[in-house]
């Protein structure tokens, strides 16, 4: 390959790769939870990860911000590149990785603190002391997560008083406040009603302008509605990856077709 083509490749393809997973294998004790996963996550796109329970979806996204390190007796091999930098390397600080790759969890998990303190938490732990700056960022994050109008008069209320859907948007605001580059959503609507779900989905589509988004979901319609790319996992293997439209209209693998048509899972 001469220099010319390399340049072209770089501009057209490599520059748009935000995260690259290379040969990821993960073991819980003796259980081989992820098998040789190779996957590229594109910048400013929504990538959905679908598959039946226990197929390794959540495990996979936890590796992307090194949250897998909380799991005892786990073993990981392979490499994850974030903008070309190997984030699993021992010389990289996991707290820095987690600031750049934020996460929204399956069940809303606001801290038992005020709404304001929830959103400002990430800024404070990252060493920001300037009160005015923090205040601006909190307001900005709450506006971006479409929660501002509902909470602007009660920022000092305990976050646990909010409804489930509001709590989840608060968790999104909390995540946005630290200015991550990538946001991982781990079944963010699993415990929400349809109206709250619709709001979160709208938000995800809105957020992809500025963030790279990965969403794990059980809900096929949700994947079809919000994502640009879809990855199908089964029993720890990546079966198929492609544009969401292609995956849903003309899946290449029989197993993918069976899953999305509801034959199992």
């Amino acid at each position: 390959m001469d220099m010319g083509t390399k340049e072209i490749c770089k501009v057209s393809y490599f520059d748009s790769i935000k995260i690259r997973a290379e040969d990821i294998n993960f073991f819980y004790g003796k259980k081989h939870a992820l098998k040789d996963i190779n996957l590229n996550i594109l910048k400013n796109q929504v990538t959905a990860i679908i598959g039946p329970s226990g197929c390794g979806k959540t495990t996979f996204i936890r590796i992307l911000n090194r949250m897998h390190e909380l799991i005892p007796d786990a073993l990981l091999t392979g490499r994850i590149f974030l903008d070309g930098q190997d984030i699993l390397s021992s010389c990289i600080d996991p707290t820095e990785v987690r600031r750049r790759v934020g996460m929204v969890f399956q069940k809303p998990n606001p801290f038992p603190k005020s709404i304001f303190e929830n959103v400002s938490y990430g800024l404070k732990v990252n060493g920001i002391r300037d009160k005015n700056f923090i205040e601006d960022k909190v307001v900005e994050a709450l506006k971006k997560s479409a929660l501002w109008d509902e909470v602007k008069d009660r920022l000092d209320d305990n976050a646990l008083k909010l409804s489930g859907g509001q709590q989840q948007r608060l968790c999104i605001a909390r995540c946005l406040a630290v200015k991550p580059e990538v946001i991982l959503f781990d079944e963010p609507c699993a415990s929400l009603d349809p109206i709250s779900t619709a709001k979160i989905e709208e938000l995800i589509v809105e957020l992809k302008k500025n963030y790279t988004i990965i969403i794990v979901t059980h809900n096929m319609q949700q994947a079809a509605r919000v994502s640009d790319y879809t990855a199908f996992f089964l029993l720890g293997e990546l079966i198929e990856f492609g544009r969401t439209g292609d995956i849903f209209k003309s899946p290449q693998d029989k197993r993918t077709e069976d899953y999305i048509t509801g034959r199992f899972g």
């Binding site: 911000n65 949250m67 909380l70 707290t95 820095e96 987690r98 600031r99 934020g102 996460m103 969890f105 069940k107 998990n109 606001p110 801290f111 038992p112 603190k113 938490y121 990430g122 404070k124 732990v125 990252n126 968790c171 909390r174 995540c175 630290v178």
Partner: peptide, 24 residues
Amino acid sequence: SLREASLSLGATKWQTIKKVVLPT
């Protein structure tokens, strides 16, 4: 889940204990 939330925002383990676990 509260510990995970704190860590996922870039907090260290000690910050998590001090600011989330102990107050709760």
